[in-house]
Amino acid sequence: MSQKVIITPEAFEYMEKVTGTDGVEVRVNLPKEIIEQINEICDSFDNDPGELINVLHEAQNRFGYLPAEVQDMVAHNLHIPVAQVYGVVTFYSYFSMIPKGEHPISICVGTACYVRGAERVLEEFIKELGIKVGETTPDGRFSINCLRCVGACGLAPVVLVGDKVYGRVSPDGVKQIIAEYSS
């Protein structure tokens, strides 16, 4: 996998003209190198519209999220309406149009964690960070997400920060977890 490129708002100041195989010219609000990366991803799946979900997975892997401009480009390459791409992106909870925080916090609210008090842990995170589920802190350090079952039900309730798993988290332990990443 190539190096991760983070798309920052400044990146959108550039305008690139892109001519599709059908000869239609469109303007895309993305820097050239990102357009090239998207082309490369789409090419690796033969620009097959049936591979749309795999293309989006790969794009999100590289860019961290799927802003509208990236969706435009993917639609252009696969010769499908942008509406279809947008429809797929918004349908599946795995895809996100908002960049995640530097330390994405995911709280498992699967049934096993729920009956062992995940709700209160979640509330504590919301209180401590001052953001809602699906949001990112203004400084971009943390974001909160809920997910359903990571399969570590023996450790319920479970919280993930990035890839690190915290098991048997109590509401009192929330501060400590955040503190670990705050310095």
């Binding site: 979900i53 599946y92 909870s93 895809f95």
Partner: peptide, 8 residues
């Protein structure tokens, strides 16, 4: 392999 994307 085909990947899901989080939809029950």
């Amino acid at each position: 392999l085909r990947y899901g994307a989080g939809a029950f």
